[in-house]
Design a protein around this nucleic acid. Structure first.
Ligand code: MN
Ligand code: MN
Ligand code: MN
Ligand code: MN
Lengths: 237, 237
DNA sequence: GCATAGAGTTAGAGGTGACTAATGATTGAC
DNA sequence: GTCAATCATTAGTCACCTCTAACTCTATGC
């Protein structure tokens, strides 16, 4: 049995920080936060996460809800946001200063986030001019709140015949990011949704002059907002 | 008892890497590498180092000599040099790109050195233009050997009445580095040794127009070479 | 109703890294 | 020559992180 223990007496090890960050991001995306889901993202076994969640709960950083799901307490959120801030600032720095490609920054930041001191992070933030968003369009939390964590509309639920403004692309899957980048899909890009096949069939889009069919898993990674009827394109073409 | 185990089966944890680096640097300075000395530098207890040295010995990375002293094997040297390369490249990057002050880069690099991937290190090296030396004048090891680890003459054994070209300043003691920087003492600077007091008394030096007395511990941190009689100054003044 | 699949947890174990306290070994002082 | 200081090691604990194997629970399907 694990004792109840205030958060401050628990060391913030890499495993603890990674778990907090994962819960924060998954919950932000509105996905259920279960033991196995977290285990998958962290590449560890479910028992490892089970024990970790128990420790985090005892420390008052996590609350368990009905069906074994996990949610951050307010205190847990504060710590998680700090880790997310480090992670996203580092991603931004790696891309802007060292030209690390889009699909590699996540893995590098995952390691570095546990090794940057607050002072160093501050220098990085200043050097970048206090950026708002990381290379995937994810908001960088600030001390005073700042931009929220809202994820907008997922591409697979965008209506056909409308334009779609891409705001965020989920950064876990490196190969998927490379593929999407090849297609020209990135935050800030506007695409047209031309056709939606039912039952998990492909979603047809246009990126500039090029048409592409996206499989369902890919569409789950892209978030943004529906902006205008695609009919406007007809007047241009 | 710890089994004999080839190096490749032993994880290169931060504790392992820090120990290898510390042995490498201490040995490079010609100082005896004992359990307590390493423990002091790593801020851990002697038993912790004792056990670590036993593991490193079993892995074929360290050899114990006569009086319990430790020395790196050739294989151990290879790994240690890699850690030192990461450490010094990071120090250089932090200073040149992020303006981290001289006396802080060591502590930051001590944490980051365990979190940079080979790919990222390569990008850092390229971004810096493959630097030779870190902010303290320490040589950055390269794959093909490169500059050696020689430490030159220690300032306390420089003769009075001669000029002294500073090549390296030992980077462990942050407060000492700050003090020396205030005095204008840094790699590449030339000073004049004006007077040597015996029995650990102060060493008098001139940095440009300013005269300073250095206590013995400080003189142990500065290495370089004796370059010319200080009498040459008289013709200038 | 019951079997099965999926998710979560418990049990048991091993590796790493850290500590304190006690014990050996060497050296230097008196 | 003995005592004390210094150094290294051993012994004994403990926390953390990870695993596999086994168990529980809860839908879901037939
Ligand atoms: Mn991480
Ligand atoms: Mn990101
Ligand atoms: Mn280190
Ligand atoms: Mn250095």
């Amino acid at each position: 049995m694990i004792d109840v223990r205030p958060c401050c007496t628990m060391p913030h090890t890499p495993a603890v920080e990674d778990t907090l960050r994962t819960i924060f991001v998954r919950a932000g995306r509105g996905e259920p936060v279960g033991t196995s889901a977290v285990a998958d993202e962290l590449h560890v076994s479910p028992p490892t996460v089970s024990i970790m969640l128990k420790r985090l709960t005892a420390a008052g950083l996590v609350q368990r809800t009905d069906g074994h799901l996990a949610a951050l307490t307010e205190h847990g959120s504060t710590h998680a946001r700090d880790v997310v801030r480090r992670h996203r600032l580092l991603e931004t720095f790696l891309q802007r200063v060292l030209d690390v490609p889009w699909d590699e920054v996540h893995a590098e930041a995952d390691a570095l986030e546990h090794a940057v001191s607050p002072r160093l992070l501050d220098r990085i933030d200043r050097h970048l001019g206090h950026p708002d968003r990381d290379p995937h369009g994810d908001p960088i939390p600030r001390d005073g709140g700042g931009i929220g964590e809202e994820w907008g509309v997922r591409l697979d639920s965008a209506p056909a015949g409308r334009a779609f403004h891409i705001e965020r692309v989920y950064d876990r899957d490196s190969a998927a990011l490379r593929y999407l980048a090849d297609l020209g899909i990135a935050p800030g890009v506007r695409i047209d949704v031309t056709e939606r096949q039912p039952f998990g069939g492909p979603l047809w889009i246009r990126v500039g002059p090029d048409a592409h069919a996206l499989g369902e898993p890919l569409t789950h990674l892209v978030h943004g907002r529906v902006v205008a009827p695609a009919g406007a394109r007809g007047t241009l073409a």
